[in-house]
Each structure stands twice: as C-alpha cells, then as structure tokens.
Amino acid sequence: MKKVLLVDDSATMLMSMEAVLKRAGLDVAKAMNGMQALQTIPKFKPDLMITDLNMPGMDGITLIREAKKLPMMRFKPILMLTTESQQSKRSEAKAAGACGWLVKPVKPEQLLAVVKQVVPGA
C-alpha cells in the first residue's frame, strides 16, 4: 500500500483529502505544519508528500527544500496543493523540487489521477 503525507494548516483540508485518498486504498499521514512534517517523514517514509504553500512558521516551499535534504525524500515526488495562483510562486516551487502544482479546490478524481501518475503502483 502506497503512503502519502498530507501537510496543511487547515484541519478541514486534511480530513477531506485523507478521506479521499484512503478510499482509493492509500495509507495516509497528516501534519499541521512544516516542522511536524519533517518529524513525520523519517518515521512514516511516505511515497508522496502533498503540501500547502501558505502555512504559519515554515511555508511550503521551505518545507520542500528541507524535505529534499532528507535521504528518504530525495527522489520521492512532492506536490503543492494551494490557493496561490501566481506564476512566480509556481516557478519557485518547481525550483525547490516540487513535481506538480494543484490549485484548490481540486476534484477528487483529478487528485487521484495525479497521484497515480506521480506514484507508480498507486
């Protein structure tokens, strides 16, 4: 079973995405901020991380940079799921190591299609 780590400061968003992904047969862990995510990664060893951009403390782009330093995340895909719409932010995320950008609200079938594309075997 493939594992996905969700990072978002909105509890509602985490619950919603967790329900969608679990129904698709994925194992899901959640984190409310960047620091929590960095602590969860070594224990959970996700196959994919989906993170929000605007979070208190550590933003999504910084989280991606820090996560990519960890050996278990170095070659794992990271998606950005955010309300942000600026091209400059997309470019920044791409440069930091993100493999995809999704704008909220995202439909469940779209999310699952992207997950299947970036995680082989999901």
Binding site: S10, T12, S16, A19, R23, N54, K104, P105, P108
Partner: peptide, 19 residues
Amino acid sequence: SAAVMNALSGVQFQDITRQ
C-alpha cells in the same frame, strides 16, 4: 460513492473561505 467523494472534496470551500 461518487457523490460521497465529491462531497468530501467539496468542503475545501471552508479552507478557501478561511484564508
């Protein structure tokens, strides 16, 4: 099941409203 999936993702409105 499909309607449930759509409803689950529909509550994303709360996060957008919150922001």
